[in-house]
Design a protein around this nucleic acid. Structure first.
Lengths: 157, 157
DNA sequence: CTACAGCTGAATCTATATATCAATTGAAAA
DNA sequence: TTTTCAATTGATATATAGATTCAGCTGTAG
């Protein structure tokens, strides 16, 4: 199925080596699942269920440990959509800052918003509060386009 | 100690009545703790520990239930600073939108940023993605002014 | 090929939060 | 004031995400 994960795997291998870590089949398999499912913001358990197809002997604890490691290595990014579990997303080297997320409070779907657009606000805050910003988390809650339509039919005002 | 919680309590009483809920001593005590500790973003367990002083017989489950209810009534706002528990904050009627938070990744301190400043961005997003925004969560992670100073001394570049 | 630090899976443990249920209570109505 | 009853309570059990432990296994440097 996925063929182009080769490149990502090489990158991970290099990063692991630097930290004195090993590239095991389990870690490779978890990374493959994340690459295969870009944009889906999978949770640890969801990744576990998928990775078991290719790697049936893998343990849940290993998936938890691998995801923590991948986060530390800067390969993935952990996100919290307030649904009680951690979710993960591939980090692309070219993106300087994180993108934002639109979380639908009706169907739970999560959409990504390109761009950052917070530079000006961040500059102001850094100056005013003497706070050195290293990252941010910006989520907008509301109704996605699909639920928006359905809602319109019902409310009809 | 706190004298001016009277007003908040009256407000809560009215809201509870509307929903068919009762104003119990336990609920009153939990609200008092939140009012007494404005700006501290207490967690459920922290609130439980404090409220037990005034109300030793209260159960933890009641505190959880009360906080959920207060949230539903629009009296408090639940926040997630990614430290594994829910934290709560009083909502002031006059504020239209939520303020932002500066979360220090070194000492864990949470500071509030006044103002919203996201209106323009939100307008753009609503139009472009056909997404009806009802709320947002904006957190900036980094080093607070205190840790910034300490850091400067150490790194010194 | 060898040695060994790092890794794994299974089981266990922890922490946060929710559900259950019999007994109690706030407050509306009589 | 007393009655009435749905809402509430505390104790306990349960659910769930995730961390920890440990004996045996395995990548990988040399």
């Amino acid at each position: 199925m996925v063929v182009f994960s080769r490149e990502e795997t090489e990158k991970l291998k290099q990063r692991l080596k630097t930290g004195g870590y090993k590239l095991t089949p389990q870690r490779r398999a978890v990374l493959d699942v994340i690459i295969d499912n870009e944009g889906k913001h999978l949770s640890t358990e969801e990744i576990y269920d998928i990775v078991k197809k290719d790697c049936p002997e893998i343990g849940l604890a290993t998936v938890y440990r691998t995801l923590q490691l991948l986060e530390k290595m800067g390969v993935v990014c952990r996100m919290n959509f307030d649904d009680g579990c951690n979710r993960y997303e591939l980090i692309h080297d070219e993106e300087d800052h994180q993108h934002h997320h639109l979380v639908c409070i009706n169907c739970g779907n999560v959409e990504e918003v390109e761009g950052d657009l917070l530079e000006t606000l961040e500059e102001k805050i850094e100056e005013k509060y003497n706070f050195k910003i290293t990252n941010h988390s910006v989520k907008f809650f509301g109704f996605c386009s699909k639920c928006n339509e359905l809602n319109k039919d019902k409310v009809d005002d």
